[in-house]
Structures are given as C-alpha cells and as structure tokens.
Design a protein around this nucleic acid. Structure first.
Lengths: 338, 338
DNA sequence: ATGAAAGCGCTAACAG
DNA sequence: CTGTTAGCGCTTTCAT
C-alpha cells in the first residue's frame, strides 16, 4: 500500500456519497446497511482519517500540550504518565514541550501556542512573571496550571501546599530528636523555591519548634549536582554539627547524600536528610529518602481532568484543586535500631 | 484579542492578495515594500499561521514522533532531549508516545501513525516481531529505529554494540581481580536482553576469560524493583561468594545495590557491580555505578539527523549508524584504597 | 436516511 | 512582482 486512502476513495468504493461515508464511520445517523457497506470499503482500503483535514474542519486537533520547565526531572515524567493515562482514552494525544528553566523560554512556548496545534495546555512553570501571566490570560486555548495557582487570573489550577510540606518534614525531624536543622533550597526566584522557603521560615519560627535553625543554603538549580555543591558549602560554613538537612526536593536531597558520604558523615546516623516529591529514584537510593509526597501523579491526573472538563463545557467557573502533602518516612531520617 | 486572525484578514488589512501575503510572510519572491506592508498588518493583528491549514496544504505536520517502550526509563528521557535539540532548530516539534513494553501496544502506536499527524517516527522498541517489522516497512512516513538494526528491511537504524559492552564490563571486573561473576539480565525475549545475554555468554566462554561464570539470573523487567528481587534470588541460589554482578542496565544495577545492602554485603568491597547506559542517576547513587555508556544522547542525536536527512532527500540509501560502547569506571566496581 | 455542496486556512501553480 | 484560483481531506448544514 503506497498512498493513504482518503474518505473520497472509500466513498467511491462503497458507491455512496462522501457525507454518508463520514457519518457511517462515526456511527451517527446512518443505517446499519450503510455502516456495513462503508466499513467494508474502509477496511479494504486500510482507511485512516487524516488528522489535518479533520483538524481544519473541526477546529480541534485532539492534542494537548504538557509544557514543563525541565523534562529531566523525574517528577515531570511521572506527571506526564498520569496525564497521558487520563487523556488517551478520550482520544487525545499528549505532546511534551520542555520550556527550559528561564521565564523567557516559557514565553516562547506560549507564543507558539497560537498556531492552533493543540486544543489545550497543561503547564508547570518554574518562574512566573507578568508577561507570562498576560500571555496565559490571553491564550486562545484553555490552560491548566500546575504549581502556582493562577485562579485569580481565571485559570484552572492544581496546587499543593509545599510550604506545609516542608513544615511536616521539619516536625518529623525534631520528633526524631534532631535539633540543629538546615534548609537546602533551590533558586528562590522560582515558584517552588519561594513557597518552600516560606515553609521553612514559618516552621522554624513557630513557637512549638523544638530545634535550632541553621538557616538556608540556596543551590543554583533543583538538580543532584547543584545539591552536592550546595551541601558542601553549607557544611563548610556551619560551626558545629548539623543534625539534619531538609532539602527542597529529592534531587537536591540525593546531592546531600553524596556530599555527606564524601565527608565521611553517615546518613541517617550523623545526619538526617529529607527530600520532597517522593520520586521513584528517591526510594531506590541508599539510604532511601524520607520524602514529602506532593501527589505528583495525582496532580497530573487532576490537571488532565480539569482540562477535559474545560474542553467540553467551557462555561464552568475556573477551579482550583489542591493536593495535600504527605510524609513518606524511609531510611534517611530514622536512626537504625541496631 | 479574542479570535485568531487568518491570513485572509491580514491580506485585507494590508490591502493585497492572499497569495502575496503568504509569500511576503515566507520571504520568498516578494518586494521589500510588500513584505513591509504585510508584516505590519500581520503584527497588528497578532497573526499566527494556522497549523492545520498549513499541514493540509503542504502535507507536512512538522511533527516527529518519538516512540519508546517505557518513558519511565531515564535513558529515553535523555534521548528525547537530544532528539529535540536537533529537531527544534529545523522547526519540528517532538511528540513522545509511550508504547508500553508489549509488542502489541507498539503495534497500535504504529497503526495510529497512518493518520498523518507526524512526518516521521523515531522508534525504540523493546520487542520486535514479524508483524512489527511488516508495519514498519509499510508505514507511510520515514522511520528511524534505535536499538536493533532494521537496515535489512530498508529502515534507517542507529545501533550500538551492547554485547561488546557487556564484554568490556566483564573484562574490567576480572582485571579488578574479581573471579566469580554473575549476570543479571532483563527479559531475554527483548532486543537488549537478547543482545546482552549473547555478550555475557561470549565473554565468559572466551579463552582469555580469567574468571568463573556463575550464570545468568533473569529479572522480570528492566527496572529497579525487578532488579532487587532478581538479585536476592541470584544471591540465594548461588553457593559460596559472588565477587561481581554484571547488570544489563543501570536500573537493574541499582536494584543490586539495594539487595546487597539488605543482605549486609558491601559494594564494592564484598561485591562489585556494573551497570549499563551510564545514566545520570547511576552517577548520583551511592556508591556511584561503574557503567557501560552506550552513547544515549549521541544515539538520539544521530537518529534525529538521519530523520532530517530522510525528510529532505528521501533518495539516499538507508543508513546504519553504530555507536561504540565505552566503560565509565566509578565506585561500584573498584575496591577503596584505604 | 442520504446526497450535494460549502468551506475550515493555507500554499502553489498559473497568468498577467 | 502580484493576483486569481484551485484544492489539500474532512465534517456539517441544508435539501431531498
């Protein structure tokens, strides 16, 4: 079979009109006999409806874009899988685009949106500025934001309380008897960086906080290698022992594990470490990471469902859905009993 | 701005014909004055060419699909990044689709191909059967295979010698003085599983092999959790010490690390471990993994370039490009000096 | 229930 | 260099 068969050819082979052929294939308002006839012809020709023709006519592409800051982060891969699982049964393809971690490249992704190649966008930006918000507001297709809530701008959003998540990690550590606690954050001009910083500051200034804050170290990036560097820097500059490091995500926490090992510090015996995001890799690492789950897959699932709802009944008021954090206790924060 | 402007509206605002407008926007065969006029009108309306109209007319979508068995494997994420980096400057979007690890779902991905939503497919299948090959051969768009070579079927392919890679790992281990060596493979009915098995069998039956083969253990899957289970099983059934385990990929090797730890075995002192794929996570793990690099990013890059070449001059004969394996020695296989 | 015909937005002959 | 026109493949009125 060399060339794709068109609907026209199917119609000719079946000996019926174009319109009837189209209807028969979609099952709406056609006689059983017609459906039978057309289906046979279509099968014989190996007919596949052409996406471009369909899109042009229907003004729908059946593609949803998932735009993320950094596809290298396993969090996004997990989200994507969840999104795909929701969307695929409804006939939507998922297109991933990596925005890079800079606001301006996120903006170029949004600009590219107006060529109508997708019916909607699920976006998880690291940095949000005015131009970004303006572009989101004026986009021609529905947008669902994961991360910072853009509900105030009329955008469906899926959020999580990562600040509280950090609080939970700090509470867990003090409960474990850790006193001198430091925070290893990623860049604070990002949405997660900002929220998690606020969470740490709040936790250690709470009257019930039974420890001592050793302050914050800021890594260049939310990655393992940045985590290693920052952890060394942190441990260099602090006088006396550090009992625990709360890392802003699992990747940074894995960096801490490595830095600790390079300095001959045992985790969890000398130093407790917690991460955030509850990634598979955090579970696999040695020692396994105690981590605050932010419901990654759940957020993806909910975002996809918001998108589906928006696509069908665009009337409904913008929603904000919030997924609560949950602590997953593993080896990196609990002293071995032996 | 509520509705997208069409080329027609731009033409009207500029007071020129549709054709001139189209030409002016593409810069081909239009006077400077025309270009200026049209550009101004286009800017004023915020014009973006519509993808569906364009695709329908040009019979090109400027989308390339990357179809992989399991997007959860970091290898594919790295490949995708490399592919995207090559394709994006040429105006192509990259669409990822996960095929699942079963041959039949790979086939459904290939079937979906004939709706013309992409101009080409870069595919990395885990399992290849006759039906799959037939579908690939008869596809309407160019296909580039990563993994098993399909050159014999006239398909551009990017391959690597993973069998030799396993041989390199084995040689490294015997050089390190490890004698009793076992192989932890993934499913052997997959392309990588089959190749790597062959590599291990060849290595240990080579006259120059200065060790003792403890045979192969097959994990259910190329994942960390399958690796943990299989490693325990392996260590349970073998009498006497195991000096080294060669794992078929990094994920399985990380599973071995964890199983060893659970049994109180020290890596690398009691047991040496090697992985394959040289993933970032293998580098971050403790101890860091000695791993055979198969040039993941390079393979992605080359595949994307083959695709680009095929898209422009479809005349050229099918190519096979092979990336050589390279051993990256790290902590998991080398006894600490202290 | 079926057919005829229009048209989605765009580009590429073809004429001038 | 510019304009007129056809048509990519499909769905959907509108008649019948």
């Amino acid at each position: 079979m060399s060339n794709r068969a068109t609907l026209h050819e199917v119609a000719r082979l079946a000996g019926v009109s174009l319109a009837s052929t189209s209807r028969a294939l979609h099952g709406s308002g056609a006689s059983p006999a017609m459906i039978e006839k057309v289906q046979t012809a279509a099968d014989e020709l190996g007919y596949r409806p052409n996406a471009a023709g369909r899109s042009l006519r229907m003004k729908r592409t059946f593609q949803i874009e998932f735009a993320v800051a950094d596809i290298g982060n396993p969090v996004y891969v997990e989200m994507m899988t969840a999104i795909h699982a929701v969307l695929a049964p409804h006939g939507y393809r998922t297109v991933v685009s990596s925005m890079g971690d800079q606001a301006d490249s996120a903006i170029s992704v949004l600009r590219a949106l107006d060529d109508g190649h997708v019916d909607g966008v699920i976006i998880s930006p690291l940095r949000v500025n005015d131009e970004f918000v303006e572009l989101v507001r004026s986009a021609e297709v529905p947008i669902v934001a994961i991360g910072r809530s853009l509900l105030d701008h009329g955008i469906d959003s899926v959020s999580t309380d990562s600040a509280m998540g950090i609080g939970i990690a700090v509470a867990h550590l003090t409960q474990q008897g850790r006193r001198r606690i430091a925070f290893l954050n990623g860049p604070t001009d990002t949405t997660p960086g900002e929220h998690r910083q606020r969470g740490f500051d709040a936790a250690v200034s709470d009257p019930s906080f039974a420890g001592e804050s050793l302050g914050t170290e800021v890594a260049d990036d939310f990655t393992v290698s940045a985590g290693v560097r920052a952890a060394h820097h942190l441990l260099d500059r602090i006088d006396g022992p550090v009992d625990a490091i709360v890392a802003a995500n699992d990747l940074l926490a894995i960096g801490v594990l490595r830095a600790a090992r390079e300095r001959g510090l045992s985790v969890p015996d000398d130093l407790a470490v917690t991460g955030m995001d509850d990634t598979e890799i955090g579970r696999a690492v040695l020692p396994s990471l105690t981590s605050v789950s932010l419901g990654t897959a759940e957020r993806g699932r909910v975002a996809a469902e918001l998108m589906l709802a928006r696509l069908s009944e665009s009337q409904q008021a913008p929603q904000l859905s919030t997924i609560g954090p949950e602590l997953m206790v593993r080896e990196s924060s609990v002293r071995s009993t032996r």
